[in-house]
Protein backbone atom coordinates (compact mmCIF):
# COMPACT_ATOMS: atom_id res chain seq x y z
CA UNK A 1 0.00 0.00 0.00
CA UNK A 2 1.20 3.48 -0.74
CA UNK A 3 1.47 5.92 2.14
CA UNK A 4 2.36 9.56 1.95
CA UNK A 5 3.48 11.69 4.88
CA UNK A 6 5.95 14.30 5.98
CA UNK A 7 9.16 12.98 7.56
CA UNK A 8 11.39 15.56 9.25
CA UNK A 9 9.95 18.28 7.04
CA UNK A 10 10.25 16.41 3.74
CA UNK A 11 7.38 14.81 1.85
CA UNK A 12 7.83 11.06 1.47
CA UNK A 13 5.85 8.48 -0.48
CA UNK A 14 6.61 4.87 0.26
CA UNK A 15 5.14 1.46 -0.39
CA UNK A 16 4.49 -0.68 2.68
CA UNK A 17 2.61 -3.80 3.67
CA UNK A 18 -0.35 -2.81 5.89
CA UNK A 19 1.24 -4.74 8.76
CA UNK A 20 4.46 -2.68 8.66
CA UNK A 21 4.85 -0.62 11.80
CA UNK A 22 5.85 3.01 11.50
CA UNK A 23 9.11 2.13 13.29
CA UNK A 24 10.02 -0.50 10.68
CA UNK A 25 8.93 1.75 7.82
CA UNK A 26 11.17 4.59 9.03
CA UNK A 27 14.17 2.34 9.72
CA UNK A 28 14.06 -0.25 6.96
CA UNK A 29 12.22 1.54 4.19
CA UNK A 30 13.33 5.13 4.72
CA UNK A 31 16.72 4.33 6.29
CA UNK A 32 16.37 6.68 9.20
CA UNK A 33 17.89 4.32 11.74
CA UNK A 34 18.03 6.77 14.65
CA UNK A 35 14.63 5.49 15.76
CA UNK A 36 15.52 2.39 17.77
CA UNK A 37 13.34 -0.68 18.11
CA UNK A 38 13.53 -2.47 21.45
CA UNK A 39 10.51 -4.37 22.68
CA UNK A 40 8.17 -3.98 19.69
CA UNK A 41 5.09 -4.02 21.90
CA UNK A 42 4.90 -0.63 23.51
CA UNK A 43 6.87 -1.02 26.70
CA UNK A 44 10.39 0.40 26.26
CA UNK A 45 9.86 3.75 24.52
CA UNK A 46 13.04 3.48 22.40
CA UNK A 47 11.05 3.97 19.17
CA UNK A 48 9.33 7.19 20.28
CA UNK A 49 8.71 9.65 17.43
CA UNK A 50 6.51 12.71 17.10
CA UNK A 51 3.30 12.52 15.08
CA UNK A 52 1.78 15.98 14.58
CA UNK A 53 3.78 17.07 17.62
CA UNK A 54 2.67 14.28 19.96
CA UNK A 55 5.23 11.80 21.28
CA UNK A 56 4.04 8.30 20.38
CA UNK A 57 5.51 4.82 20.18
CA UNK A 58 6.31 4.07 16.53
CA UNK A 59 6.00 0.32 17.15
CA UNK A 60 2.34 0.81 18.13
CA UNK A 61 1.41 2.71 14.98
CA UNK A 62 1.04 1.23 11.51
CA UNK A 63 2.86 3.09 8.77
CA UNK A 64 -0.39 3.26 6.79
CA UNK A 65 -1.99 5.12 9.69
CA UNK A 66 0.20 8.23 9.31
CA UNK A 67 -1.14 9.08 5.86
CA UNK A 68 -1.05 12.87 5.62
CA UNK A 69 0.60 13.36 9.03
CA UNK A 70 3.79 15.12 10.09
CA UNK A 71 6.32 12.68 11.54
CA UNK A 72 9.51 13.83 13.26
CA UNK A 73 12.27 11.43 14.33
CA UNK A 74 15.46 12.01 16.31
CA UNK A 75 17.16 12.97 13.02
CA UNK A 76 14.71 15.85 12.66
CA UNK A 77 15.52 17.44 16.01
CA UNK A 78 18.95 18.88 15.23
CA UNK A 79 20.89 20.20 12.27
CA UNK A 80 24.66 20.53 12.14
CA UNK A 81 24.83 21.62 15.75
CA UNK A 82 23.62 19.72 18.78
CA UNK A 83 20.17 20.64 20.06
CA UNK A 84 19.82 22.00 23.61
CA UNK A 85 18.62 18.59 24.81
CA UNK A 86 21.59 16.84 23.18
CA UNK A 87 23.98 19.33 24.78
CA UNK A 88 22.32 18.75 28.15
CA UNK A 89 22.49 14.96 27.75
CA UNK A 90 26.23 15.20 27.01
CA UNK A 91 26.86 17.60 29.87
CA UNK A 92 25.04 15.42 32.42
CA UNK A 93 26.35 12.07 31.09
CA UNK A 94 22.73 11.09 30.50
CA UNK A 95 23.64 8.25 28.17
CA UNK A 96 25.99 5.33 28.18
CA UNK A 97 25.24 2.75 25.48
CA UNK A 98 22.85 5.19 23.80
CA UNK A 99 20.22 2.68 22.72
CA UNK A 100 17.40 4.34 24.61
CA UNK A 101 18.61 7.90 23.98
CA UNK A 102 16.62 8.73 20.80
CA UNK A 103 13.41 7.74 22.59
CA UNK A 104 14.27 9.82 25.66
CA UNK A 105 15.19 12.87 23.58
CA UNK A 106 12.10 12.76 21.34
CA UNK A 107 9.89 12.29 24.40
CA UNK A 108 11.59 15.08 26.34
CA UNK A 109 11.44 17.35 23.28
CA UNK A 110 7.68 16.90 23.00
CA UNK A 111 7.28 17.48 26.73
CA UNK A 112 9.41 20.64 26.86
CA UNK A 113 7.83 22.03 23.70
CA UNK A 114 4.36 21.76 25.25
CA UNK A 115 5.32 22.36 28.87
CA UNK A 116 8.59 24.34 29.09
CA UNK A 117 8.09 25.01 32.80
CA UNK A 118 7.69 21.39 33.95
CA UNK A 119 8.81 20.37 37.41
CA UNK A 120 10.85 17.30 38.26
CA UNK A 121 7.81 15.25 39.25
CA UNK A 122 6.23 15.78 35.82
CA UNK A 123 9.50 14.98 34.04
CA UNK A 124 9.77 11.72 35.97
CA UNK A 125 6.11 10.91 35.28
CA UNK A 126 6.54 11.44 31.53
CA UNK A 127 9.89 9.64 31.28
CA UNK A 128 8.42 6.62 33.10
CA UNK A 129 7.36 5.44 29.64
CA UNK A 130 10.99 5.02 28.57
CA UNK A 131 13.36 2.35 29.81
CA UNK A 132 17.12 2.89 30.28
CA UNK A 133 19.13 -0.11 31.41
CA UNK A 134 22.59 1.33 31.92
CA UNK A 135 22.87 5.03 32.74
CA UNK A 136 20.18 5.25 35.36
CA UNK A 137 17.51 7.89 35.35
CA UNK A 138 19.01 10.57 37.60
CA UNK A 139 21.33 12.13 34.97
CA UNK A 140 18.57 11.87 32.33
CA UNK A 141 16.11 13.76 34.54
CA UNK A 142 18.82 16.34 35.34
CA UNK A 143 19.55 16.82 31.64
CA UNK A 144 15.89 17.39 30.78
CA UNK A 145 15.46 19.85 33.64
CA UNK A 146 18.61 21.67 32.52
CA UNK A 147 17.31 22.02 28.93
CA UNK A 148 14.04 23.65 30.05
CA UNK A 149 15.42 27.17 29.90
CA UNK A 150 16.10 26.89 26.15
CA UNK A 151 12.52 25.82 25.46
CA UNK A 152 11.13 28.56 27.68
CA UNK A 153 13.13 31.05 25.62
CA UNK A 154 12.09 29.39 22.37
CA UNK A 155 15.65 28.40 21.40
CA UNK A 156 14.99 24.74 20.66
Amino acid sequence: MQVQFELNGEAVITDVEPRTTLADCIRDGLRKTGTHVGCEHGVCGACTVLINGDAVRACLVLAVQVQGDKVVTIEGLSGDELSPLQVAFRKHHALQCGFCTPGFITTAHALLTNEPNVNEERVRDVLSGNLCRCTGYIPIVEAVLDARIHYARGEE
Binding site: G42, T48, D54, A55, V56, R57, L60, V126, S128, G129
Partner: peptide, 9 residues
Protein backbone atom coordinates in the same frame (compact mmCIF):
# COMPACT_ATOMS: atom_id res chain seq x y z
CA UNK B 1 -3.79 5.06 32.38
CA UNK B 2 -0.52 3.93 30.82
CA UNK B 3 2.45 6.17 30.01
CA UNK B 4 2.88 9.51 28.22
CA UNK B 5 3.33 8.19 24.67
CA UNK B 6 0.39 5.78 24.95
CA UNK B 7 -1.78 8.50 26.50
CA UNK B 8 -1.18 10.61 23.40
CA UNK B 9 -2.79 7.99 21.20
Amino acid sequence: VAHYQVRNR
